Amino acid sequence: MSIINHLLQKMTAYYAGDPKRIHHFIKVHSFSKQIGELEQLDKSTQFVLEIASIVHDIGIKVAEEKYGKCHGKLQEEEGPAVAKDMLTVLGVDASIIARVCYLVGHHHTYAHIDGMDYQILIEADFLVNMFEDDFSKSAITATYGNIFKTASGKRICKNMYAIHEQESS
Rank of each mutant, 00 (worst) to 15 (best):
Thr143Tyr: 02
Asn5Gly: 07
Lys154Ile: 13
Lys137Arg: 10
Phe148Thr: 04
Leu7Tyr: 08
Gln9Glu: 15
Asp134Glu: 13
His6Trp: 04
Ala151His: 08
Ile3His: 12
Ser32Trp: 10
Ile4Glu: 05
Ile147Ser: 14
Lys158Asn: 07
Asp114Lys: 09
Asp125Phe: 02
Lys137Ile: 08
Thr109Asp: 05
Asp117Trp: 00
Asp42Ser: 15
Lys73Gly: 09
Tyr67Arg: 09
Val128Ser: 06
His108Asn: 07
Cys101Val: 12
Ala139Tyr: 04
Asp133Asn: 11
Tyr14Cys: 10
Glu165Lys: 10
Asp57Gly: 12
His29Glu: 00
Asn159Leu: 14
His29Leu: 10
Tyr102Arg: 15
Ile35Gly: 00
Arg99Ala: 02
Lys149Phe: 00
Lys84Gln: 15
Cys157Asp: 02
Ile60Thr: 08
Tyr161Cys: 01
Ile96Met: 08
Val62Leu: 09
Val89Glu: 15
Ser138Gly: 04
Lys20Thr: 12
Met1Arg: 07
His107Lys: 04
Asn5Ala: 11
His71Trp: 14
Tyr161Arg: 01
Lys158Ala: 10
Phe135Leu: 04
Ile97Gln: 03
Ala63Ile: 00
Gln119Lys: 09
Met130Arg: 02
Gly153Met: 10
Asp114Gln: 12
Ala52Leu: 05
Glu132Trp: 12
Lys158Thr: 03
Ala151Met: 15
Phe31Thr: 02
Cys157Gly: 09
Glu76Val: 07
Val55Met: 00
Tyr144His: 09
Thr143Cys: 12
Val89Asn: 08
Glu64Gln: 01
Glu37Ala: 12
Met11Val: 06
Tyr144Gln: 10
Val92Ala: 03
Ala94Glu: 13
Ile156Arg: 00
Tyr118Ile: 06
Phe31Gly: 06
His107Val: 01
Asn146His: 14
His106Ser: 15
Tyr67Met: 05
Val128Tyr: 02
Asn129Val: 13
Lys149Ser: 04
Lys20Gly: 02
Asp85Leu: 14
Thr45Asp: 11
Met160Trp: 15
Ile26His: 11
Lys33Arg: 14
Phe31Ala: 07
Phe31Trp: 12
Glu165Trp: 15
Glu50Phe: 01
Ser2Val: 09
Ser53Ile: 09
Asp57Cys: 05
Gln9Phe: 11
Gln75Phe: 15
Ala98Met: 15
Gly72Ile: 01
Glu39Asn: 12
Lys69Phe: 14
Tyr15Ala: 03
